[in-house]
Design a protein around this nucleic acid. Structure first.
Lengths: 116, 116
DNA sequence: TGAACGCGTAACCTATGGGTTACGCTTTAC
DNA sequence: GTAAAGCGTAACCCATAGGTTACGCGTTCA
């Protein structure tokens, strides 16, 4: 979890994670969306790889990156435990709502794609 | 959220957050539990304060710190959204289980305290 | 009232994280 | 088979995060 917490501390790495959440992208495609140089992005990608937050997939001279949700699980659990101290049971209700909202968002996005 | 993500990147600050989750502690009590100097801890506390992750409460010459769960909410939502990409609906079930476990843990701890 | 306590801040040092340019390796394309 | 594309790595530079010691200010207590 330590590695994950460190990895998401950088704004560029957080942006990369959001990029590869729903579609796999090559290193070049990712780098093109940032103002910093390609090698800089390449090192960010290495940090994300080594902390288990993304997976990479070689295909010829391209390397495809995609999010690895499992890599975020431990940190997420840590945060959940931290956010629910003794005597704050109403916070658990809020978290439940959060999950429900995520479920609904996913459903809506799927429907929009299908009707587009 | 950027500030929260940066704040939890440091292992000492993560340890502090866990310490003050269920009980308020003075700066001195917190510092005593670490190998680093008291001023170093004091600055970690400042980072946590300024990022809204803890609240402080002056009382005479003591300053009590306690966790502010709200400060973690935005980062937690960000992680939740990231962990549930399109087509991974089963992950939402896992998150729901996570909340249920937190609820149960809280209940168990409360009961243990009462019967102790 | 003065000594000790609790805590934060200032000044300083060092390690390191993130940036750049230069380079090399493998794969595609002509 | 040679040129170009796609990536990663090495070497280097600089800003800054995190550590230390020294210090100052308010609060307690004898």
């Amino acid at each position: 979890m330590d590695q994950a917490a460190e990895a998401i501390a950088d704004p560029i790495r957080r942006a990369i994670l959001r990029m590869v959440r729903d579609e796999r992208l090559t290193a070049g495609e990712i780098a093109a969306r940032f103002a910093v140089s390609r090698p800089a992005v390449s090192r960010h990608l290495r940090v994300l790889r080594e902390s288990g937050l993304v997976t990479d997939d070689l295909s010829g001279r391209h390397r495809y990156y995609s999010l690895n949700p499992e890599g975020l699980a431990e940190l997420h659990r840590w945060l959940t435990a931290l956010m629910t101290p003794a005597g704050w049971e109403q916070r658990l209700d809020a978290l439940e709502t959060e999950v429900h909202r995520a479920r609904r968002d996913n459903r809506d996005n799927r429907d929009n794609r299908e009707t587009a």
